[in-house]
Simulated assay, not measured.
Amino acid sequence: MKYIPLSKYKYFIEDKTNDPAAIESEYQSRLNGYTSQKTTLFPLLNYHDGAQTSKYPIFYLPLPEIQNLADQLRRNSNMIEDISVTLPQVAINQFFEFIITL
């Protein structure tokens, strides 16, 4: 099955009962998946009946495109660091001032 956002998952389960246990089970399987990355952020969620909860942590799945961009960012950062070592302190200070004022 195609990866469906949890907000739409209840419309795709077979029995169409919007069973909260089935949705919770799917959430837990995604949260505890092998590649899932959990954060320490717990958003305040509002339900249609007015109830609120903040018991669900935010998580994400690292997609190949995101991993490639993160690797590219790391390589570029290392290259900048290597170049900055060869610069005099005055040039480094001017660069930081330029970046801060952008």
Rank of each mutant, 00 (worst) to 15 (best):
Q94R: 06
S29H: 09
G33W: 05
G50W: 00
S77I: 07
R30I: 00
G50S: 02
Q37T: 11
H48M: 09
P62A: 02
I92D: 01
S25N: 10
S36P: 02
N76K: 13
K10W: 11
P20D: 01
E26F: 04
F96K: 05
D82V: 06
P88W: 03
A70W: 06
H48L: 13
F59T: 00
Y34R: 14
K16T: 06
P57A: 00
D71T: 12
P43D: 00
H48S: 14
F59M: 04
K8V: 05
F95A: 15
D15C: 08
S29A: 09
L87G: 02
K8F: 10
F95V: 13
G33S: 15
S54G: 12
Q67V: 15
L6Y: 10
E97I: 06
S7E: 12
L41I: 14
E26S: 05
M1R: 08
Q72R: 12
P64M: 01
K55T: 09
K38Y: 01
I100F: 12
I66W: 10
R30W: 09
Q72C: 03
P62Q: 02
F98M: 11
V85G: 01
R74W: 07
D82A: 15
Y27S: 00
K38T: 10
I66G: 08
T39S: 15
G50R: 03
R75W: 04
F42G: 09
A91W: 12
E26C: 06
F59P: 00
